[in-house]
Amino acid sequence: MNAPMEGYNFAYLDEATKRMLRRTILKAVAVPGHQIPFGAREMPLPYGWGTGGIQVTAAILGPADTLKVIDQGADDTTNAISIRRFFTRVAGVATTERTEDATIIQTRHRIPEAPLREDQVLVYQVPQPEPLSKLEPRRAETKRLHALADYGLMHVRLYEDIARLGHIAKAYDYPVMVNGRYLMSPSPIPAFDNPKMHRMAALQLFGAGREKRIYAIPPYTEVRSLDFEDHPFRPIRAPQACALCGSRESYLDEVITDDRGGRVFVCSDTDYCGTRVAARKGAA
């Protein structure tokens, strides 16, 4: 363990705040998929950069934890690097880029390709926790709709997609029903990742800093993507192989290589891709 910075409490937040956050998280775990309001603190980075996820991580982080942070699946992007460095400095915890070595994984917009375990926690950064927000702007009304499990409106949205486009157009932030009770936004992960949430062994926590909401999916919880019987949910990925590791299973990013339309598809999960490339080299 590295020596944390002087002058800050462990993991930046004071203990009372962490206790408040933990109570909120416990409540969220007790009512899977239900958004719990909490007193979000000002964090030393702007809204939209993961303030909700960071507060959740800070509340559950212990000195023995190993932290991994990804942004769109990548460990080496600005957001991921700065959050990782932040916790190194304020908590002195070990960090890793390897999914299997991490005990806590904070993520923005992806779920790692490797299956997670019971001893791991996945923390999502959430910009808009309310799945109905675009359909019903009044918060009092969306709360009522959740209370009454009145979710016809969300299906209306999917109906509209099929009526106009012939298929459900939502490719990310695809709404799910948690434990057969609450409609939940999975944060803007690709719909491709939705099936990984279903009965996941790891605890999944969601933090929205600006909107001041926390919600959770306990391990092995039923998570179903909304769909129609005759238009079933289908996780979509680019029909290509990764240009680096050759995977045909992983979620791919399209990378423009020049200004003449050249492009390649590579794994969005850098650890998954790197591990496969290394294994191939080792075998060769």
Binding site: D150, G152, L153, V156, Y159, I162, F228, E229
Partner: peptide
């Protein structure tokens, strides 16, 4: 849909 119809 509000009363559970799920067949487009």
């Amino acid at each position: 849909m509000a009363v559970g119809a799920r067949h487009y």
